[in-house]
């Protein structure tokens, strides 16, 4: 008989679920763009079950991860940190991965992986510069959609420097650049470089080994991926499933637990 497991990743800005069959096949996924403290997690769970045409009782094990993981006590069988889950998910998608960079809604993590397991990690300090939230703030000031940042930055033709130290300072820098008529696309490119610079500092603290994989929603912004790759001088791999990586890792751990 097959084993079905669910991974739930309750982030600060989105809730994601993955259902896995036999620890190998993703049979359903869901994503709701609000995170912990909202209806997001329960909606995401309902949606993923509907997509799989299954009910909660058919799940052999449910594991929650992410910032809001502890709010799911009762709903999930177990909680694990998003660090281990991102390591697990990335190792599934890229078996040779040694370094995982995850830029989430309000934190950045760099994870060192050995034999598919998390060996060590560093995370950002409490400052939000360099996180997904930073990009949200910038997109709002620039009046563009956050999803479009990557594409717009690609069209940049001129170097514009944006401070990498503080969201508030960077925001006012962007506003003053706009005030003097700088092209938005150049500003966006500058923002990408500034985020990358922040993350590179963290990467060097754990040490960068190939393969480098970037996960999390921000990995969909290829402007950031490109800036990061060039500053790190390493190739960076991403997957179309990047946003589900944490939930995938959780479902994989759930499979291990169900098998015990």
């Amino acid at each position: 008989m097959s084993i079905y497991t669910m991974g739930i990743d309750v982030g600060s800005t989105a809730s994601k679920c993955v259902i896995l069959k036999d620890g190998k096949h993703i049979i359903a996924k869901s994503l709701v763009s609000v995170g912990t403290g909202t209806s997001g997690p329960s909606r995401a769970i309902a949606e993923v079950l509907e997509n799989a045409d299954m009910v909660r009782e058919e799940m052999d094990f449910v594991l929650a991860t992410g910032y809001g993981r502890n709010s799911l006590e009762g709903l999930a069988d177990m909680q694990m940190s998003e660090l281990s889950c991102h390591a697990k998910g990335a190792s599934f998608l890229f078996p040779n991965v040694r370094t995982v960079i995850d830029i989430g809604g309000q934190d950045v993590k760099v994870i060192e992986i050995e034999n598919g397991m998390m060996k060590n990690f560093v995370m950002n300090d409490k400052c939000a510069a360099g996180t997904g939230r930073f990009l949200d703030v910038m997109a709002r000031v620039l009046e563009v959609r956050v999803e479009d940042l990557g594409m717009l930055g690609d069209e940049s033709t001129k170097e514009v420097g944006i401070s990498s130290t503080c969201t508030v300072f960077a925001e006012s820098e962007v506003i003053s650049q706009l005030a003097v008529g700088t092209d938005k696309r150049d500003i966006i490119n500058g923002i990408h470089k500034s985020v990358a610079a922040r993350v590179v500092g963290l990467c060097h603290r754990v040490g960068v080994r190939d393969q480098v994989v970037m996960t999390g929603g921000v990995a969909q912004n290829h402007g950031i991926v490109k800036a990061l790759a060039s500053q790190l001088q390493h190739e960076i791999h991403t997957s179309p499933l990047t946003q589900y990586n944490g939930a995938l890792g959780a479902a994989l751990f759930a499979f291990q637990k169900a098998n015990k």
């Binding site: 940190s81 281990s84 060996k119």
Partner: peptide
């Protein structure tokens, strides 16, 4: 809490 749990898992 996340960092402690991460450390424990590592």
């Amino acid at each position: 809490e996340t960092r402690v749990q991460g450390l424990v898992e590592a």
